[in-house]
Design a protein around this nucleic acid. Structure first.
Lengths: 202, 202
DNA sequence: CTTTCTATATAGCAACATGATATATCATGT
DNA sequence: ACATGATATATCATGTTGCTATATAGAAAG
C-alpha cells in the first residue's frame, strides 16, 4: 500500500471482486452499474491496476481468449485484496466535499435575473425526471436478471437512494420555479424592462 | 483567460463580486456561506487570484487597515470581470460527476453484512438530521440580517435545496435501515452466527 | 513573563482525478 | 475499399485537495 488510501482504489478493487476484468471492463462496469453515484477515469484506473498488482492486492493474467485483439490484461483479486476491501468497507465513509455548479450559479443569480435562472432549473428538472424513468427501468431489469443474487438487496438500496434524491430534486425545482416566477412579476412591477435596480450596497 | 474555464474561477470571482476580499476571506466565505454545495481550497484560490489579476478580471490592492499583520492583499472585480461572471452564469451548468463514498460502500456491502452497513447508514442519518437543524438556524439568521437584500431570495433557494436533499436522504436512511434489519433477520434464520453463506457465484 | 494557542495570511507540494488525445486491432456496414 | 464504432491500453495537461511551512498578532494559560 504505497500511495494514499483513496476511494478510487477500492472502487476498482470492488469491481474486480465481482468478476476478474481488464481496465476497460472496469470502466464499462462503473459507467453502466454504479455510474449514478460513482465515476472513474482511465487515467486513474490503469495506474491503480499497476500499483495494486505491485502491492499484491490483485494479480495479472494474460489475454484469455485473445482472438487477435491487443494484449487484454485481466486482473483478479487476491485474498489479501479481499481482506483490504472488507477492511475499507468497514471504515466510516468520508464526508464527500460538495460541488453543485447549478447551486453555485443560482447563488449569484441576481446578476442575470430570475428568468435566466429559471431556465437552468427547468433544464435540471427535465434531467432528473429522465433519471427517475431510467431508475425504474433499471430496477425491473435487476429484479428480473438477478432475482436470487445475494448482493441484489444492496444494489437496490443504492437505486432507492437515487430515487429519493431525484424526487427531492424535482420537488425543489417546482418550488424554485414558483419563487423565480414571483420574482419575475415583482421585477416587472417595479418598472424596468431589463430590471437592474440598484439598491443599498451590492 | 489562459487556463480552462473551471467553475472554481467563477466561484472566486462571484465571492469577490459580493465584496472585495483577500484569498483568506474568500475561503472563509465559501466555508461559511456556500459550504453546503461548494468548496474551495487555498491551493486553488491563490493561483486563481494571480491568474485572474493577470487576465484583468480583478485588481489587487495593498493592505487597507494593515495593523501589523502581514501584507493583506485585497482583490476587487473589474467591469471585465463582472461581464465574465454574468456570461458564465448564463451558460448551462455542467453535470457534475457524482461521488458518494457511502453508496460505493453500500453497493459492495454484502462482504461485511447488513449490520456493519446499517452502522454507516445510521451515522449518515444523524449527520443529515444535524444539517437540517443547522439549515433552519441559518434561514432565520439570513431572514433577519438581510431582510431587504436583493439577493436574499436566491440565497434562500440554495438553502431550500439543502433542505430537500437532507429530507430525501433521511427518508432513504429510514427505508435502508428497515431493509438492512430484514436482511439481518434472514441471515440469522439461515443459521450461521457470523453469516457468510456461499451461494452460486460470488 | 513566557509559552502556548488561535486567528490571520500566503505559498508550495504530493497525491488524486478528469478529459482529451494517441495508438492499434477487429467487426460490421456501405 | 473505406468508414465507423467497439475494444483495449497509455499518456499528459489541467484541475483540485489536503497537508505542511512560514510569519505575525492577540488572547489565554502557566
Amino acid at each position: 500500500m504505497k500511495s494514499g488510501e483513496s476511494a478510487s482504489k477500492f472502487a476498482v478493487l470492488g469491481v474486480l471482486s465481482l468478476k476478474p476484468s481488464s481496465g476497460y471492463d472496469v470502466k464499462q462496469f462503473v459507467e453502466g452499474s454504479i455510474g449514478h453515484f460513482w465515476s472513474e477515469s482511465y487515467g486513474r484506473i490503469y495506474p491503480l491496476l499497476k500499483e495494486m498488482t505491485a502491492d499484491g492486492l490483485i494479480t495479472r493474467r494474460q489475454g484469455e481468449k485473445n482472438s487477435g485483439r491487443p494484449e487484454r490484461q485481466v486482473y483478479s483479486v487476491t485474498p489479501r485484496g479481499e481482506a483490504a476491501l472488507r477492511h475499507w468497507l468497514e471504515q466510516q465513509p468520508r464526508n464527500e466535499s460538495p460541488r453543485s455548479e447549478l447551486l453555485l450559479k443560482l447563488f449569484f443569480s441576481k446578476r442575470i435575473g430570475p428568468q435566466a435562472s429559471a431556465k437552468h432549473v427547468r433544464e435540471k428538472k427535465q434531467l432528473e425526471e429522465n433519471k427517475l424513468a431510467i431508475y425504474a427501468q433499471i430496477e425491473t431489469g435487476l429484479r428480473r436478471q438477478y432475482a436470487t443474487h445475494p448482493e441484489l438487496p444492496y444494489w437496490l438500496l443504492t437505486l432507492s437512494f437515487g430515487r429519493h434524491m431525484c424526487q427531492g430534486l424535482v420537488d425543489w425545482c417546482d418550488e424554485a420555479l414558483q419563487t423565480l416566477s414571483q420574482l419575475t412579476k415583482k421585477e416587472k412591477a417595479t418598472g424596468k424592462g431589463k430590471a437592474i435596480k440598484k439598491r443599498g450596497k451590492v
